[in-house]
């Protein structure tokens, strides 16, 4: 059953500050799409719009989950999580003073997710063995890489079909960035996810992305239909990579 996401002509901002201007982004079934851009260009704002944490001024956001179409604008975050969309927030945003297991349980807070909570917890521990070892440890006391794994595992606890990942590389050592990106690819294949990943680490993101968008000052500056187009585009080289 198909899972996809389409944003069309989205305008959004905070108060009078416009952040996103006429942004159209789509993610087809089982695709990994990278949203590339440096800080302050609207990547997180776009994620917040999809999750219903910020209501766009105009434009449409439509998700197809298991073949059924849902208009996301105007829905609460809880409803959107219930539909099968989960966000790994920027900077991980774990609950630092709660244990690893409590963090995971909070990923499955919704009624629909609770029914399968034991199975999903086992699955999370099977996917991330280190989390089982550290089950009773406070999340804030783990290393950055482990915290990123926990953030991914927490998002998967709600059994999402579409996974949004906001800057998985933030605050991680280069070797861990590359490991995290590999892990995302593995998770995507194992759980048949449709993935939208915001990232500023161009080279790492392009490694696992099927295609990507470059966002500059709140509008889509370039759409690469495959990784070659992204790698070889003059605009990307000039404005984004500074080559």
């Amino acid at each position: 059953m198909a899972n996809s996401l389409a944003l069309t002509g989205v305008n959004a901002g905070y108060g009078r500050v416009r952040v996103l201007e006429n942004v159209s982004v789509s993610v087809a079934h089982a695709e990994t799409v990278a949203l590339l851009g440096t800080n302050g260009n609207g990547k997180s704002t776009l994620m917040k719009c999809i999750m219903g944490m910020l209501r766009p001024a105009s434009g449409s956001i439509v998700a197809e989950i298991d073949g059924a179409r849902h208009d996301l604008v105007g829905r609460t975050t809880e409803e959107i999580v219930d539909l099968g969309i989960a966000l790994v927030p920027e900077g991980r945003r774990l609950f630092p003073k709660l244990t690893v297991e409590e963090n995971l349980l909070l990923g499955a807070f919704r009624r629909s997710a609770r029914a399968l909570i034991t199975r999903n917890l086992d699955s999370a521990y099977a996917t991330f063995p280190v989390l089982r070892e550290r089950r009773r440890q406070l999340a804030g006391s783990m290393s950055g890489g482990e915290q990123q794994m926990l953030a991914l595992a927490r998002a998967l606890m709600s059994e999402p079909r579409i996974l949004l990942i906001d800057e998985p590389s933030v605050g991680l050592a280069p070797i861990l960035v590359s490991r995290t990106i590999d892990k995302i690819k593995e998770l995507k294949e194992r759980f048949e996810l449709t993935v939208l990943m915001a990232e500023q680490n161009f080279n790492q993101a392009v490694r696992i992305a099927d295609r990507g968008y470059v966002i500059v000052h709140g509008h889509i500056a370039f759409e690469g239909h495959n990784t070659d187009e992204l790698n070889n585009n003059e605009l990307v080289r000039k404005f984004y990579l500074g080559l």
């Binding site: 975050t77 809880e78 959107i80 989960a86 927030p89 945003r93 909070l106 807070f109 927490r154």
Partner: peptide, 20 residues
């Protein structure tokens, strides 16, 4: 109580994770 603790620790993250 777990939901309350999530709000205490990081309310925005709790919201993003679907905690009402």
């Amino acid at each position: 109580g777990l939901g309350f603790a999530a709000i205490r620790d990081d309310e925005q993250a709790a919201e993003a994770g679907g905690v009402p």
